[in-house]
Write a protein that binds this DNA or RNA. Structure first.
Length: 489
RNA sequence: CGGGGUGUAGUUCAGUUGGCUAGAACGCUGCGUUUGGGACGCAGAGGUCGCACGUUCAAGUCGUGUCACCCCGACCA
């Protein structure tokens, strides 16, 4: 079941992984660790993800905007629990100028150019956006205010892992302001569901979603709801969150509006985001020992055609291939003809497998004589011969079939790795072995949660069921809630 | 911040009790032969052995210091 190989590959930089990203080498003595360069092929995957997410976000009524990278320290400290949650992982800008070193060796910070107030490189943008909102919002007519930002952010994590926790990462953060609590909470849940649907339909990743515990919630939020995916090694990956901010930030940033009844009121807010981390979920969920496996919906190249020819018949083969490319492109944009004649077909097969292209066509003299093409699907490595006249129709169906099949596999992984656990000993055994999600009763006491974490490394991921009755797995007291708990990234 | 480890070619690494002009594989460049699962031959380019100081006739190798990175923890909306 668990493929430890895939997981370990996301933690080091093996060869095939280097097709997508590489470790940033910023400088010989740079203290910046855990930044990554996203290569063109990797970025193309991200762009496909962005495109579909952006469509869904706009469909929910949000408009894209952009706010500054640098946040004055004073903004940052306005909401008490927010600053407490992020303070330990912030990069701080203190100066605005360099100068030649007095000893003539290189460049040093000009101490005369010290900023009066330090600037924080955004670890998230609530504070700078809400400072702006306080000026944008004056009347009930300005609400709801629905804004989304695509940006990079920086968190100085003590330990980084490629994709899963990098110092700098790309994300999308949505910020909404409502006049009423009901509207606000509805959207918190709607956006959570949007992420669940996106993961399922586009990434072919099945998830659990629901409310987070007090200790796991966003710094400054009333409630946080998370989306969790199961990785092949039995650990859970949180790849999206939706926060009910209540009036916490509105009060801290003095966001007010005059309502229809003439009184001045404080609005309600929510925020939600997903990051390049979900590319980690995508890679770990689907890939195998031969490299990436990409769902067609996000694959930069959906079909690759590898011509197999010798000098004598190159023209014939290429003409046949070009003809097929032309036909495919009428309905499938992402088709690539690998016309390089300086690498062997075997090399190409391997290379496109590493890159996770869903469908490969191998076309040589033999196929032409048989009146068709050889097709190979990446997810199962199954080879098939398809009549020339059927190629377009067959390819479209095959791409759908691959998308569905990857989702089915993800669904069985999450299902097969979820177990209702009654006894604490059972939980300990599970977390030492196969891991996965334990569905347990928990009384809600943070002390039980903390002890479970200390003894099993498992944390509460999200609530599984409310209004049920059972006994807390740790203390045995009455519990009305079942929770998914797991070790996590 | 604790524990462990590593710094030698673009990459991964070898380099013996200190000893000759510092090596291999992959990658890269050129020419030729190849091409249905990571082709082969020949010729080439490529190194301040992390840095500093020390011991020695002699240091990639030993010592001290320093810097950087990796792994395991702790931490992580």
């Amino acid at each position: 079941m668990a493929d430890k190989g895939i997981t370990s590959r996301t933690q080091d930089f093996s060869q095939w992984y280097l097709d997508i990203i590489e470790r940033a080498e910023l400088a010989e003595n740079s203290a910046v660790r855990g930044c990554m360069v996203i290569k063109p092929y990797g970025y193309a995957i991200w762009e496909n993800i962005q495109k579909e997410l952006d469509r869904r976000i706009k469909a929910s009524g949000h408009k894209n905007a952009y706010f500054p990278l640098l946040i004055p320290k004073s903004f940052f400290t306005k909401e008490a629990s927010h600053v407490k949650g992020f303070a330990k992982e912030c990069a701080v800008v203190t100066h605005y100028r360099l100068k030649e070193s007095p000893d003539g060796k290189g460049i040093v910070v000009d101490e005369d150019a010290k900023l009066e107030e330090e600037l924080i490189i955004r670890p998230t943008s609530e504070t700078i956006i809400y400072d702006t909102f306080s000026r944008w919002i004056t009347s009930w007519r300005d609400l709801p205010m629905k804004i989304n930002q695509w940006a990079n952010i920086m968190r100085w994590e003590k330990r980084t892992r490629p994709f899963l926790r990098t110092s700098e990462f790309l994300w999308q953060e949505g910020h909404t302001v409502y006049a009423t609590e009901e509207e606000n909470i509805k959207e918190v849940m709607d956006m959570l569901q949007m992420y669940v649907d996106f993961a399922r339909d586009t990434l072919a990743v099945e998830t659990y979603s629901g409310r987070k515990s007090e200790s796991e919630k966003f710094a400054g939020a009333v409630n946080t709801f998370g989306v969790e995916a199961m990785m092949p090694d039995g650990k859970s990956l949180q790849f999206g969150t939706s926060h009910d901010l209540g009036q916490n930030f509105a009060k801290a940033f003095d966001i007010k509006f005059a309502d229809k009844d003439g009184t001045v009121k404080t609005p309600y807010q929510n925020s939600w985001g997903v990051s390049t981390r979900m590319m980690g979920a995508l890679i770990m969920t689907h890939s195998d020992d031969n490299g990436l496996v990409l769902p067609p919906s996000v694959a930069p190249i959906k079909v690759v055609i590898v011509p197999i020819s010798k000098d004598e018949n190159r023209d014939t083969v290429m003409e046949y291939c070009n003809n097929i490319v032309e036909e495919l492109k009428t309905e499938i944009e992402e088709v690539e003809l690998d016309a390089r004649d300086f690498v062997s077909p075997g090399y190409k097969f391997n290379e496109w497998e590493k890159k996770g292209v869903p469908v490969r066509m191998e076309i040589g003299e033999r196929d032409i004589q048989n009146g068709g093409v050889t097709m190979v699907r990446r997810d199962t490595n199954e080879k098939m011969f398809v009549e020339r006249s059927q190629v377009l129709e067959y390819t479209k169906n095959l791409l759908n079939e691959i998308q569905n099949s990857l989702l089915n596999r993800s669904q069985s992984i999450i299902r097969n790795n979820t177990h209702a656990v009654e006894s604490y000993d059972g939980l300990k055994t599970m977390m030492k072995g196969e891991k996965g999600y334990a569905k347990v009763y928990w009384c809600g006491d943070p002390k039980c949660e903390e002890s479970i974490k200390a003894e099993t490394k498992a944390t509460t991921r999200c609530i599984a069921e409310e209004d049920v009755s059972g006994k807390c797995i740790y203390c045995g007291k009455d519990s009305k809630e079942a929770w998914y708990i797991a070790q996590s990234y």
